[in-house]
Computed example of a mutant assay.
Amino acid sequence: MANRKKKNRKKSGLSYIESLLPTSFIELIREERRFLILIGLFFFLAGAFYDRPQVAMWLGFFFAAYSAIANDSIQTIGTFLASNADKKWWLLWLWIGGIFVITVSYSWYVYDGDVTYQRLTSKGFSEAPTSFKFLQVAAPLFLLIITRLRMPVSTTFLLLSAFATSPEGIINVLIKSLSGYFIAFAVAIVIWLGLSKYLNRLFKGEAGSFWMPVQWIVSGLLWAVWLMQDAANIAVYLPRSLELSGFLVFTGFIFFGLGILFYLRGDKIQKIVTEKSYVTDVRSATIIDGVYACVLYYFKSVSVVPMSTTWVFIGLLAGREIAMSLTDSKGKGRPLSYSFKLIAKDVSYAMIGLIISIIIAVAINPVIWDELVNYFFS
């Protein structure tokens, strides 16, 4: 009897607390309780081991590997997933995972243990960390939370900024990323406006059987070029030259992490892709991936400075949405006002990620703030 009364008091106490909170917030907590428990555990591990460099190095890498690929999956394999929803997940995983292994293995062999295609040789990122601060190890966890909220933020800014040894490194990444956004935006408008009549004819009826292998090849090429740019976001925790054992851990963990991502079909952030116009058609997905791969390869060739591929991707989709709205005659595009809303939402999320990354960088190294202010306002 006494135990029953205690249980009733506990329930009434919980009910009172729940009554003070918005219903939507309570539902969110209940729905995401497993994720929140896991994130809490990860933050605890980051706090417990950040002052042990050999442990913190790999712990930060494990966090970064999954969070970066989970968030950036919308750029590289998002359209691939959307247009192959009827395929078995493990077939898609083996294709993309195999390309990952080949791509990073080539870089590791050619560049003497460097898996980033020399992205981390640029000023501000060339030195591997020998000690860690809590926020450096925990930075990927903020990215996991943002990913869970379906926000396509820049993993480059959020992760690399935490290790920048000078503001010049952050500024160079920012300049290159913003130029990537505007160039991708312009290229998309030119292509989808200039080829609108041809594309309308191309998209009539069902897609031919030859489109599927073409899309797999194009998606694989895009994935490889993306890795050449963004592997730096994951490897920033590790020595700039990996021994064979370190390389095997690096490759194996990401390979099996991709398996989880494909099993979850991109998880919640996949909605960022599927809400865009006409992306589940294999023909449209192939063209998007092909244009994106060309733009990324161009920037890879320009310099070894890392860049935010997220900004390039949202610029590409923004230009495509605008062009499809302007040429829309059969309902394939969105109304122009709706397209602007989608563009504004994606840019605002990317800006949130940029602001968070600068806050983390300044919290880790306060000198960076003074030098950034002097750079822009002196």
Rank of each mutant, 00 (worst) to 15 (best):
F377N: 14
G315K: 11
S196M: 02
Y237S: 01
G169C: 11
A231T: 15
Y50K: 06
D267Y: 03
K197H: 09
P306E: 06
E275S: 04
S348M: 01
R33N: 14
G205C: 13
V190C: 03
I234F: 00
L28I: 04
I343G: 00
M212K: 15
K133I: 08
F63R: 02
T130K: 15
D51A: 11
L141T: 09
S179C: 03
T130W: 02
V312D: 11
P239G: 02
G113A: 11
L178M: 14
F299T: 13
R320H: 12
F253W: 10
V305W: 04
S179Q: 00
L144E: 03
K87G: 00
A184M: 10
G205I: 11
Q136S: 04
D114C: 04
Y338L: 14
Q229H: 07
R33A: 13
W89S: 13
P306D: 10
L36K: 06
S154M: 09
P53N: 06
D281F: 05
V347G: 00
S131M: 04
S357D: 06
N365I: 04
V312T: 12
V214C: 15
A82S: 13
I234V: 08
L258N: 02
S161Q: 00
A68W: 08
F185D: 10
T310Y: 01
I189P: 05
R283L: 02
P140Q: 00
R320C: 06
K276Y: 09
R334Y: 15
M57V: 01
E206Q: 10
T155K: 08
Y106H: 02
F340N: 02
L174A: 15
F42C: 15
Y198N: 14
I254R: 01
V362L: 07
A162D: 12
T251F: 01
S325L: 14
L242P: 03
K300N: 07
L242G: 03
V153K: 03
P366Y: 00
S15C: 04
